[in-house]
Design a protein around this nucleic acid. Sequence first.
DNA 1: AAGTAAATACCACAATTGGGTTATTGAGAC
DNA 2: GTCTCAATAACCCAATTGTGGTATTTACTT
Lengths: 217, 217
Amino acid sequence: MDDVMRTVDIAIVEDNKRYLNELALLLSNSPSINIVGCYERGKDAIEEVVKTNPDVILIDIDLPDISGVEVIERVSAHGCPAEFLVLTVYDDDKHLFSALQAGAVGYIVKGSTSLDEIESAIFDVIDGGAPMSRVIAKRVIETFRTKKTPQKTKTKFDELTKRELQILEYISHGYTNRQVAEKLHISYETVRTHLKNIYNKLHVHTLVEAIMLYKNR
Amino acid sequence: MDDVMRTVDIAIVEDNKRYLNELALLLSNSPSINIVGCYERGKDAIEEVVKTNPDVILIDIDLPDISGVEVIERVSAHGCPAEFLVLTVYDDDKHLFSALQAGAVGYIVKGSTSLDEIESAIFDVIDGGAPMSRVIAKRVIETFRTKKTPQKTKTKFDELTKRELQILEYISHGYTNRQVAEKLHISYETVRTHLKNIYNKLHVHTLVEAIMLYKNR
DNA sequence: AAGTAAATACCACAATTGGGTTATTGAGAC
DNA sequence: GTCTCAATAACCCAATTGTGGTATTTACTT
């Protein structure tokens, strides 16, 4: 119809120089793809990518300096409207879900995806799709069904006692330690004792950390 | 390699007799598909399908007697290990997500999917995939990311400046005020100033309250 | 009966956070 | 050329939180 002349501006963030060149070479051969930026480090990308304003950003999730997830978050936070397509060697739930939650729309496992498929994934993205393999899609909905906890592995929350969980629950509703004490009819110092034990079990040092873990458990 | 003789047992639950016949006809033509049951009503399916023990169940989500969602739930509850592939005319989030949550692995919109595609979707399922269109996949991960709060109504967060949101973002990752200052290369006191302004705008008095609002915004 | 885990409570001190106030700079708006 | 606002920064003081202890009671295990 009308997409004969449509071009897509893309940026690539990939620390492996060889792979980066390979990708850039292939994609630049496509008449409808316009590479507006290549970055080997996440930090560079965060600073530069907003200026070039690409439509799609191909990003390696395992960058040497900052995690790709953080790059996605920060670039999005910068108000960049680009869609993120994650390239990765990690075919595990942990990376998958943190990428999706950060805002990636697609997840491509390096080894098992041809360069051609990457190209078509880019077009998928601008067409409003979410390119990922069927198998990955399955994992996504699986988590969807079972609701919370994307990982079935270790959950430190098993170690927490009923009382400790209860206190986290109140804290997460915005109550201060003193207010929790009042609500539970125990002393302020007891609440603090529970909190100390919680911190030790979760390996955190502040309320906010504990709460964030709790809410994503 | 070895799938020459593999056959898939499937059941179909579909109230539209015409469509049911059409489907059954097509699928029975495939040498590797074996239709073990057809049901026009959800109630029948619940009672019968466990006995025939299909690998995949094609199910219309909008049945006249019981909702397809309920059928999925009850058949699964009966210990039937089948995978569910939802057929539907409803291309909206409400039906999509309730189907996924009930346990469907695939979601196929009737109008926009050919019978051939349905056949390959079935093979997708037994290969461990989750067949759905790219566009539907996009909607799934979209919800994934934003989690709760489907309404975008009133949000006090509009009042927050870019910097303020950025600070909340860091805080929500567990950084202390001092660490945020360092990350952003601004002074500790500036971070605190921003936080005070945030508190005023959000009408809260503690970090945890602010973060909880932020995370559910 | 002894041992253990959970819940309770208090003390003390350091660090961080909450709240008020003031002030400078630069970018856009009018 | 003001005016406003976002972003920056500092100071003070009170309150809360973070960290290290120690200690008692109850309930469940062995």
